[in-house]
Amino acid sequence: MRTTTARRTRALITLLAAGALAFGVSGCDGYTATSPAAARKGAPAAGTAAFAQGPDGAVDCRHVKCVALTFDAGPSVRTPQILAILAKYHVHATFFTLGKNHVRVHPEMVRDMVAQGHEVETLTWSHQILTKISTDEVRKEITEGRDAVEKATGQRPTLLRPPQGRTSAKVTKVAKELGMAEVVWSANGADYKTTDSKLIASRILKQTKPDGIILLHDLVDPTNRGYNGTVASVAPIISTLQKRGYTFVTVKQLLAPGKPVAGKVYK
């Protein structure tokens, strides 16, 4: 059983690493992205519940330097460590979860994410590359990943991170039909390539700008080639960016008072 699980994990890690590298070099399969600033522009005023809560009250990212921290591919046995760090720094993040071998295996961790005020969304059911499968398969991957989170938490995700950041007109059409908006990233720690937490943090700190969306992974690598430096990078990333004047928010808070629109891709 352990051998089978390790093999599945190694296969997933290979897909994640190859995809993130390909995304960084060649981009996605083609889409028009909407920036958080564009999502907020012209949006009607909203109640304070739409915004992040800072030390001095509600934080409006139209006037405050905001950044969203996101984690892909969990939950895993590392999740409690990540949640503890986020709690220490009073930061809320967005988790894009996998259904098959993660949400289904660790539903209690997904409930802990929600209980602590984090956003829990979907990275699909089994991390198939959506641009390489049929329309029916795309719909199945998104629906089953979304439903796994809803079963565990009672809350239905409305945000989709397409695996490897790859989307297309076909994928976007299905996402729109399912009421899902897509979210990619602007800062990538490339934690799939190294176990060096200082290097991971350095990459994020160099890439992060206001309205940024940070990509890290909530995953364990049994080959010890990558991801195993991620947890130790989280605190330095948060503390340094906070010292630089950034406020950490969830993806939906980053877009507020605008709201995610089904069928759009946010970056």
Rank of each mutant, 00 (worst) to 15 (best):
K176V: 00
T223D: 15
T135W: 00
R139S: 08
H127K: 07
V184C: 03
T158S: 12
D56N: 15
D211L: 07
Q207Y: 07
I13W: 00
I13Q: 05
G54K: 01
A20M: 11
D112P: 01
V138E: 08
A43P: 11
P222V: 01
K198F: 08
T135K: 10
P157H: 01
K206M: 00
R111H: 07
A17Q: 11
K100M: 09
L12K: 00
N228K: 01
V25H: 14
H118G: 12
G99T: 04
I13M: 09
G154R: 07
L215P: 04
V103Q: 01
Q155W: 00
A93W: 01
A38P: 11
T194G: 11
K88A: 08
T240D: 12
R10C: 07
D221V: 03
K41T: 15
Y227Q: 04
V67D: 06
A18C: 13
K65D: 06
K176W: 04
S197P: 05
I213A: 00
G47I: 11
D56M: 12
F51H: 07
G263V: 02
K209C: 00
A18F: 14
A232R: 08
D218L: 01
A46L: 12
Q164F: 10
A175M: 05
I237V: 02
V114T: 09
V105L: 09
T14V: 05
G263E: 03
L21G: 09
D196A: 07
F71T: 08
A17E: 08
R146L: 01
A68S: 15
R111V: 12
G165A: 12
N101Y: 14
S239V: 14
A190C: 06
A181R: 02
I214G: 09
A11V: 12
A52V: 01
